[in-house]
Design a protein around this nucleic acid. Sequence first.
DNA 1: AACATATACTTGATAGCTCAAGCATACATC
DNA 2: GATGTATGCTTGAGCTATCAAGTATATGTT
Lengths: 145, 145
Amino acid sequence: MNTINLNVKFLLNLARVQSIMSKRFDRGMGNGVGFSEFLILFYLNQSDSQKMRRIDLAEKIGMTASGVTRMLLPMEKIGLIKSGSIDEDARVRSVLLSEGGKQKLDEALERFEILGEDIFSSVKIKEIEAASNLLVEIGGKILMS
Amino acid sequence: MNTINLNVKFLLNLARVQSIMSKRFDRGMGNGVGFSEFLILFYLNQSDSQKMRRIDLAEKIGMTASGVTRMLLPMEKIGLIKSGSIDEDARVRSVLLSEGGKQKLDEALERFEILGEDIFSSVKIKEIEAASNLLVEIGGKILMS
DNA sequence: AACATATACTTGATAGCTCAAGCATACATC
DNA sequence: GATGTATGCTTGAGCTATCAAGTATATGTT
């Protein structure tokens, strides 16, 4: 990489690792959920009422509202989520994590954790923590702009 | 994120930041090259003869051979790269960085560096370096499997 | 109250990739 | 040297997400 700017180098590494990671995720998860579906289930579960507006979900997982609409259709069909409405605003169609979705998420999380241990087996916890914090810092910065 | 496994957390942050980054890249680069095109030009330039086999290029940028084939077609049309063959093996169609491509890369790199400075302005160099090294380490580990 | 503007979502068209299959060449083995 | 298998690349079909435009509701302005 000789004279390449450090920042650029970091961003290139980021892209590379992420590309490798998501492929490995899809392979490792087998016939279960895809990465985007996993993200939806995950963030839904994180929210206190397990219920979110489509647009907030989109922002969380880094996708357009349109993308979320298309993802949710089949997910609702197979009973992973349910759609509803909220009282305060008739424009929003809320997304609710259903029982099936919760189960699927638990399965996926379990396999995901094994995958993680596998990948990080020889990396020090402190290092991962530091890198993770850096990512959050960068992510926040970018989001604000 | 309460009780979520640290590794999982890292991988989620990775995905999020990468998604934000590539969008920001495409926005910031304006009507210039897209991210994948940039990667092609960049890695071509990095190779000593500025010439690579399509398949090595594919592996570098984390894409299938098929994807590379489709990307290169328009890039050759507008004079960013040239296709050739190598003496040792008649199956390969080599990719050569052309003058136009080199110019485009220089422009993109310049803008990319500014983007990088903007994003990392308040992050310590040591931290970036550490995170970057961690990414390389993970990337290598994954590639071997 | 009327109107302009913003927000939440959906939908048609399309971009950018993958996967599976195919073709051509290379390499290994018998 | 014929035959089987691996490699490099391309191509058709299909998937996933985007963008631009459209609909419905909300909010702010006069």
